[in-house]
Simulated scan of single mutants.
Amino acid sequence: MSHTERMPRTRTYLMCPPEHFTVEYAINPWMDTTAPVDPVLALKQWQMLHDTLAELGHQVHVLDPQPGLPDMVFAANGAFSVDGTVYGARFKHPQRAAEAAFHQLFYAQGAWRFADPAFVNEGEGDFAYLPNAYGGLILAGYGFRTDPAAHAEAQEILGRPVVSLKLVDPAYYHLDTALAALDDRNVTYFPDAFSPASQRVLSQLFPDAVLADRADAEAFGLNLVSDGRNVVLNTEAAGMADKVRAAGYTPVTVDLSELKRGGGSVKCAVAELRP
Score class of each variant (00 low, 15 high):
29 P>D: 00
38 D>I: 09
208 D>V: 08
187 V>R: 03
147 D>I: 07
68 G>E: 05
21 F>C: 03
3 H>P: 09
140 A>W: 05
274 R>A: 10
229 R>M: 11
148 P>K: 11
225 V>P: 01
241 A>F: 09
188 T>P: 00
66 Q>L: 06
9 R>D: 11
255 D>F: 06
27 I>M: 02
95 Q>F: 14
215 A>N: 15
17 P>R: 11
243 K>Q: 10
140 A>V: 05
260 K>A: 14
7 M>W: 12
261 R>A: 13
119 F>C: 14
140 A>M: 04
261 R>Y: 12
84 G>N: 04
101 A>M: 13
172 Y>L: 10
40 V>K: 14
130 L>V: 07
144 F>R: 03
71 D>E: 07
236 E>W: 10
187 V>C: 02
116 D>I: 13
33 T>P: 00
59 Q>F: 14
175 L>D: 01
176 D>R: 09
58 H>C: 09
251 P>V: 06
98 A>Q: 11
240 M>W: 13
260 K>H: 11
163 V>K: 02
57 G>T: 07
97 A>Y: 11
182 L>Q: 06
132 N>S: 15
171 A>P: 02
92 K>M: 13
22 T>P: 06
127 F>W: 04
239 G>K: 04
166 K>C: 06
166 K>A: 09
74 F>S: 05
101 A>K: 14
62 V>G: 00
24 E>T: 14
65 P>E: 04
92 K>N: 12
20 H>K: 11
223 N>V: 06
37 V>I: 13
62 V>R: 14
37 V>N: 03
242 D>C: 11
266 V>R: 00
45 Q>M: 05
171 A>Q: 15
68 G>H: 04
73 V>W: 02
74 F>C: 02
261 R>D: 07
91 F>K: 12
224 L>H: 02
267 K>G: 03
90 R>Q: 14
161 P>Y: 04
162 V>D: 02
256 L>M: 12
169 D>H: 08
127 F>I: 02
196 P>F: 06
126 D>N: 05
75 A>R: 02
114 F>D: 14
258 E>P: 01
148 P>T: 11
78 G>R: 06
184 D>I: 09
74 F>N: 02
247 A>L: 03
59 Q>L: 12
106 F>I: 08
8 P>W: 07
4 T>P: 02
217 A>R: 07
161 P>E: 00
180 A>C: 14
4 T>G: 10
94 P>A: 12
265 S>L: 05
230 N>T: 13
267 K>R: 15
212 A>L: 09
114 F>S: 13
45 Q>T: 04
38 D>N: 11
58 H>M: 09
242 D>V: 12
75 A>V: 07
249 Y>H: 00
240 M>F: 10
8 P>N: 07
182 L>K: 07
113 R>C: 00
241 A>C: 10
244 V>C: 03
27 I>N: 01
150 A>C: 09
60 V>Y: 05
197 A>E: 13
91 F>G: 08
35 A>C: 13
247 A>C: 04
78 G>S: 11
147 D>P: 07
209 A>I: 04
17 P>K: 11
80 F>I: 05
225 V>G: 01
